[in-house]
Write a protein that binds this DNA or RNA. Structure first.
Length: 198
DNA sequence: AGCGTGATCTTT
DNA sequence: AAGATCACGCTG
């Protein structure tokens, strides 16, 4: 399938969180190691209105990439061990991003297994920290965009509405009630969180 | 259900 | 300068 262009990401964050479900995230590493994962779970984080968003109180050194153009990667380090992968949304100089929370392995599985130290397929990328590790993503990826030869996203047919579920977001304390987590229903690679589904 | 782990942000 | 928090994952 074709690679998604900038225009695809130029849509409100909450819509983008749904539109990304089913799409194929790709990284090509030196040595022609091709890694592909199907996005099955996302969360929306939106600027000043959203107290759980890193940018809710304005620009800082950490969150500056969230203000860049849609289709930029925002990667940060948390809990002393984990990298989180986000795709920036909203126009330039306006903060918003979609957290990629889970993927289904599509290609490069043996590399992912080595990175993760497990061969259990549903455990490779069923969480945001896990998928970053599987793709060997760290802060050096922060600020790169999805329109080059290393990182891009491949298109896939849109999912029927009834296959998409919503719930509250996972692992946050502020703005817990917002149903801004989106996932593909009944997909075994979706993370196991304490959530109330809609 | 408890804890490691370290950057970042808030408060002093 | 010190303390709290944290978009998590693993053990047990």
């Amino acid at each position: 399938m074709e690679r998604l262009k900038r225009q695809f990401y130029e849509t409100p964050t909450l819509e983008l969180a749904e539109k990304l479900l089913g799409k194929i995230f790709v990284r090509i590493l030196p040595g022609n190691i091709r890694l592909k994962g199907r996005i099955v779970e996302t969360e929306a984080y939106l600027g000043q209105q959203d107290e759980a968003c890193h940018a809710w109180r304005g620009r800082t050194a950490r969150n500056q990439m969230m203000y860049r153009a849609p289709g930029t990667m925002y990667v940060y380090f948390t809990y002393g061990s984990h990298y989180m992968l986000n795709i920036v949304s909203e126009p330039e100089n306006s903060a918003g991003a979609v957290l990629i929370r889970a993927m289904e392995p599509v290609e490069g599985v043996s590399f992912m297994e080595e990175q993760r130290g497990t061969a259990i397929i549903t455990n490779l990328m069923s969480g945001p920290g896990k998928l970053a590790k599987a793709f060997a993503i760290d802060v050096s990826c922060n600020g790169k965009d999805l329109f080059g030869e290393e990182f891009f996203v491949e298109d896939a047919p849109p999912l029927p509405k009834e296959m998409i579920g919503s719930s509250n977001r996972v692992g946050i304390s502020r703005s817990r009630e917002l149903p801004w987590r989106k996932f593909i229903r009944n997909n075994p690679h979706v993370s196991k969180g304490n959530v109330t589904c809609v």
